[in-house]
Design a protein around this nucleic acid. Structure first.
Length: 1088
RNA sequence: AGUCUCGUAGCUCAGUUGGUUAGAGCGCUACACUGAUAAUGUAGAGGUCGGCAGUUCAAAUCUGCCCGAGACUACCA
């Protein structure tokens, strides 16, 4: 039986299958947690996905990141539990249900009961759970899906209520109203999500008006008036004339320069003075059909306009509605939102219909007018406009635009400077296609602004990858924090746990089911009811609960649901049903050491976690966070079902295997950069890493099995006695472990992956294995051979450990192939401990020596190439100018490797290079630049021009004086780089300060040896193609072409040893014709 | 519109505190090597480092403006 299984070919998808089954049968995931100490935890939070959509390739990316850092920390000995979770509430689910049932929000509670509707939502939300479970398994994402948290469960909701009550008790919950996008046609508010749906913004042509607001003459406004009878008006532009009746203020930019223009009204032709921004005068005067400037005042700042009062533009005698108690109106305010990019530099302000408007109004004690109702038509007290729709919301036949009628009225009354059509982008309701109206809506808010400073402070203690997402994107977001609008007037979500009396005089926030039960009992008693705590805390059941106030009034629940983002931000607590259960478990798992999601979650989950942790616990919810970019298609386009460029993760994994897919995604680009997903890249990863490792393993297994070499055998010589090259690759390996851990500890997986690729390809495969092949297949199991086996075995095992976080399947397959025979190793790579780098093995000098060897070999090969001297043809000597003593002793230790690699007999050192080697001097800009400054350029030229003698003197003395622009400088050794450029009469190559020369003269012996090597190659090829075994002995006959006899005479024994030939004779009559040199053919026959 | 990220070879990406021949892999071409063979080596072709200006003796690197791609926020008279 073989110690190391041998395989016919690499099949990554098959390895996935095999390992998956084996993991499951042997509970490897469970063991990877149980076997780690319970008091050494590394805490991970799963950001819950929603199972109401199919998983995409970007989910594979995001989850690979989560998975790999968890696996890595397991390797480092931590206990990493991964509780899964499902996000189950939210608008997307409701919308998909509405669509499926063919209903709108209006129908809910009418044609379908809320109860039935929510049942449907509950079903829908887990629609693709099977697919999600499948991709989780197939991509190798280890997460506990047997005990997930589910946001719709009563326990979860109860914990959320607890948190909300906690905030309520701190005075952080309040009811207010804000301006929100609202669709009168659909009768519902719109979320920003809905506004961002494709096609929501449309180009529309609206009637715009520059309205003229008549200034009231008083002390403050005196500077605007030249005489008591002057008609001074402030010009303000609007694209929504229907909001003009609701105007209560004007806004100017405090630093904008304004001016008063004397002109006459273009419609009534009466003289008027118009105030507007100086920069915008040309937009409104002097053009075709425009008034002309008849005179103008000096310019003045917007701040001077502040407080100036004007007459209502369209007065229908309505009372000003208070905003935060403020009822002032009809005056000029200043605000930073005012620009001169269009309009007049003065903004018509209707606080009920614009978010900016409302903000400045509130800040200045100004009230509002809400003259439009929720159906989108004017209320009954708006004169001739009463009852008319402000936009054509009902597809009325013969609908007449109110905007036009208002414009006409203003024109007639001399209150308009300009009326025209204007094309601009305006949001529309995605469902009704009608323009959105910004409308004041009642909402519950979390006063997050109150905790803003603390959030900023705590954010500085969080390690963000990449840093700029935390400092800039998230940091700026916190700086500009607004209160968190918690309300959603929907049906499927966590109900707001606040009950109020009808007059709002008393309210209660319920923080637990027990408290609810107590309150219900009290209410039952006081109001003679027989209510019970509902079995399901969702609507509609919770809506039916009436509580009672201290003075016996009934209290109804505020009808809103809470923002689903609060659900997910509550997961650190709610996943354990804290504080009602699992108190200890919770504290063991708070805060998270690590979370990871897409960068789009910055304002989403990352924020809600942080906000709740700050506000409720004055702490952070996570210590390290990796935010990854998007996965785009290979052309950099966003993937979408519509464009048909979405990559199917199932197909991809089935075709290439999970590991190659994961490896590609993480090694190709930093996770936080967008990834242009190209299948070709997976193929490349397969070739570069997995095939190379597979080949290296196969090579090892082939010979180790023949020799029955067992890695558990303790008789292998200690590392410090092994050959130079063994110590070298182990030194490389251990410096790799060191660097790898530093990268991974810093959450930089891409750099770690690339390091491993370099090691596996360049160092292990292309250098170590290639140079050592003979040691593996030559002769019996010697000590040297055992050293080679042990060295390669260690490299492969440790590599399997290091790649295991990213490539969990292949790594375990490789690890088990290498270790499973003995039973003395952990059964899976995922149960091993990552070795610490052994500092005894780190040897800088050794690495440097081998770098020289590789470098010099490459230079020799390039000379051979240039001279058309094939490598099988041996050459006499290499000439090496010695830079210093260390260089010579370095080369001496790797001499044999170089000589055998390039097939040359000897290296000669030239120590006294003067006269032999021509040199060149180059300035060291780095050291000289600082000292010489402006003279640097001239000095560089002087140094460049130094002749051989000058360079020799400098090398001897170590100093050089030069004069530039009358300034003397003494240059030290470090200031000048001396390069050996040429050895006259020799074939030379140089690079990076190393120069080598090659003696290319040939003699009979060299030619004969070269011929012998060619012969060995042909015989071996023939052996192989004849299907002979590596160990078969043969008899060889060759055709006696020119040079063959001589080669056999001088090197016959060598040829026989190499080819395992018992006999070797010339015979020109028989044999297979094979290609020989220079287009000739040669007959060779071999027999067993 | 604002904030942030990105822009280097045909493609995917490196590029240290600014320092003088801007690199690697893939792909392409040619020639080699190979009892690891769907691998490997050497060489060649391929760059206005998105553009413009500035700071500096010196800019892919620092600053400003602009262009392009993307994300988020906002949508405003």
């Amino acid at each position: 039986m073989s110690l190391y299984p041998e395989y016919k070919g690499m099949n990554l998808p098959a390895i996935d299958q095999e390992m998956l089954q084996w993991w499951e049968e042997n509970r490897i995931f469970d063991k990877s947690i149980e076997q780690r100490p319970a008091d050494k935890r590394w805490v991970f939070y799963e950001g819950p996905p929603s199972a109401n959509g199919m998983p995409g390739i970007h989910h594979v990316m995001a989850r690979a990141i989560k998975d790999l850092f968890c696996r890595y920390h397991t390797l480092k000995g931590y206990r990493v539990e991964r509780k899964g979770g499902w996000d189950t509430h939210g608008l997307p689910i409701e919308l998909s249900v509405e669509k499926e049932l063919g209903i709108t929000k209006d129908d809910i509670g009418k044609s379908i009961s809320i109860e039935d509707y929510n049942i449907k939502c509950r079903e829908t939300v887990m629609r693709y759970k099977a697919e999600w479970d499948d991709i989780t398994r197939k991509m190798g994402y280890w997460v506990d899906l047997n005990n997930p948290y589910i946001t719709y469960e009563n326990d979860y909701i109860e914990s959320v209520w607890f948190l909300l009550e906690k905030l309520y008790d701190k005075g952080l919950l309040y009811k207010g109203y804000t301006i929100q996008p609202y669709s009168p046609a659909a009768g519902t508010g719109l979320s920003s999500h809905e506004l961002n749906m494709p096609g929501a913004y449309k180009e529309v042509k609206d009637t715009t008006v520059v309205a003229l607001f008549k200034v009231i003459q008083n002390d403050q406004a005196a500077f605007l008036f030249d005489d008591a009878n002057e008609d001074v008006r402030i010009a303000a532009w609007t694209t929504t004339p229907w909001t003009l009746p609701s105007n209560t203020a004007l806004s100017a930019g405090p630093d904008i320069s304004y001016i008063k223009i004397k002109t006459s009204n273009p419609y009534t032709h009466t003289p008027v003075s118009v105030v507007l921004a100086e920069a915008l005068v040309p937009n409104w005067f002097g053009g075709k059909n425009q008034s002309t400037v008849e005179g103008q005042s000096a310019a003045f700042k917007g701040s001077q306009l502040k407080g100036i009062r004007y007459e209502p533009l369209l007065d229908f005698g309505n009372e000003i509605e208070p905003l935060l108690g403020g009822t002032d109106a009809y005056l000029v305010l200043t605000g930073d939102h005012v620009t001169t990019s269009d309009g007049t530099g003065i903004v018509h302000t209707a606080p009920s219909f614009g978010a900016d408007d409302q903000r400045v109004a509130k800040a200045n004690g100004v009230g509002t007018l809400t003259l439009v109702d929720q159906t989108g038509k004017f209320k009954e007290n708006v004169g001739p406009y009463s009852g008319r729709y402000v936009k054509d919301y009902k597809d009325e036949p013969g609908y007449v635009a109110v905007d036009i009628d208002i414009a006409v009225q203003l024109k007639l009354e001399g209150k308009a400077l300009n009326v025209q059509k204007y094309e601009h982008n305006y949001p529309h309701c995605w469902r009704t296609d009608k323009p959105v109206l910004y409308y004041p809506m009642d909402s519950w808010f979390i006063k997050s602004t109150a905790c803003k400073d603390r959030m900023i402070e705590l954010n500085k203690t969080i390690n963000w990858k990449p840093a700029h997402t935390g400092e800039k994107r998230f940091g700026n977001w916190l700086e500009n924090l607004q209160d968190w609008n918690l309300s959603r007037s929907r049906f499927w979500g966590i109900p707001l746990n606040i009950w109020r009396t009808a007059d709002g005089s008393e309210e209660k926030c319920i923080g637990s089911i027990a408290q609810l039960a107590k309150e219900i009992d009290a209410a039952n008693l006081a109001l003679n009811l027989s209510q019970e705590v509902p079995g399901d805390l969702h609507r509609p059941f919770i809506d039916e609960i009436t509580l009672v106030s201290s003075n016996g009034q009934p209290m109804k629940r505020e009808s809103d649901l809470i923002d689903v983002w609060f659900d997910s931000g509550a997961m650190p607590y709610a996943q354990w049903h804290y504080p009602f259960e699992n108190e200890e478990k919770f504290w063991q798992n708070y805060s998270a050491d690590f979370i990871a999601e897409g960068v789009d979650q910055t304002r989403g989950w990352f924020f809600t976690l942080h906000a709740i942790a700050t506000m409720a616990f004055d702490s952070i919810a996570f210590k390290n966070v990796v935010s990854n970019g998007l996965v785009l298609d290979k052309n950099g386009q966003k993937m979408s079902k519509r464009l048909g460029n979405a990559v199917d993760p199932f197909k991809t994994i089935t075709k290439y295997g999970a590991d190659a897919t994961r490896w590609y995604m993480l090694s190709n680009a930093q996770p936080w950069d967008n990834l242009k997903f190209d299948e070709e890249g997976i193929v490349e990863s397969t070739r570069k890493l997995f095939s190379t490792l597979y080949n290296t393993y196969s090579f090892f297994a082939l010979y180790a099995n023949l020799d029955k070499w067992n890695a558990d055998d303790a008789g292998v010589m200690p590392v410090d006695q092994r050959p130079e090259i063994d110590r070298w690759i182990l030194s490389r390996l251990h410096s790799l472990i060191d660097a790898y851990q530093a990268d991974m500890d810093d959450f930089d997986v891409t750099t770690a992956c690339r390091r491993i690729e370099v090691f596996v390809n360049d160092h292990l495969s292309n250098w170590y294995v290639r140079l050592n092949r003979r040691r593996f297949w030559k002769g019996e199991l010697s000590d040297d051979k055992r050293a080679a086996y042990a060295t390669l075995h260690e490299c492969l095992v440790v590599v399997s450990q290091m790649i295991s976080p990213v490539a969990p399947f292949f790594s375990d397959w490789l690890y088990r192939s290498l270790t499973a025979y003995s039973g003395k190793h952990p059964e899976s790579v995922h149960l091993t401990d990552l070795p610490s780098p052994s500092h005894d093995l780190l040897d800088e000098a050794l690495l440097r020596r081998m770098d020289y060897a590789q470098h010099i070999s490459s230079l020799i090969l390039s000379i051979r190439k240039k001279e058309k001297l094939r490598v099988r043809l041996p050459l006499r000597r290499i000439l090496l100018p010695v830079l210093d003593d260390r260089f010579q002793s370095d080369i001496d230790q790797v001499k044999e490797l170089i000589l055998s690699e390039v097939n040359v007999k000897e290296i000669e050192y030239i120590t006294d290079t003067a006269g032999m080697v021509s040199k060149k001097a180059k300035a060291n800009f780095k050291t000289l630049g600082k000292r010489l400054g402006k003279n640097m350029k001239v000095a560089a030229d002087i140094i460049q021009a130094l002749d051989q003698d000058a360079i020799a003197r400098f090398e001897k003395g170590g100093e050089l004086s030069i004069t530039v622009e009358g300034q003397d400088y003494t240059l030290e050794r470090e200031d000048i780089e001396v390069i050996s450029e040429d050895i006259p009469g020799w074939q030379v190559a140089f690079e990076d300060g190393i120069t080598v020369a090659l003696d290319v003269t040939l003699d009979d012996e060299l030619i004969a040896e070269g011929t012998a090597r060619e012969l060995v190659n042909r015989i071996q090829n023939l052996r192989k193609s004849s299907g002979l075994n590596v160990t078969d002995r043969i008899n060889v006959k060759v055709e006696a072409l020119e040079g063959i006899e001589s080669a056999i005479k001088q090197f016959g024994d060598y040829i026989k040893t190499e080819t395992l030939a018992l006999s070797l004779v010339t015979d020109s009559t028989i044999g297979t014709k094979v290609e020989w040199m220079d287009g000739e053919e040669i007959g060779i026959s071999i027999e067993r």
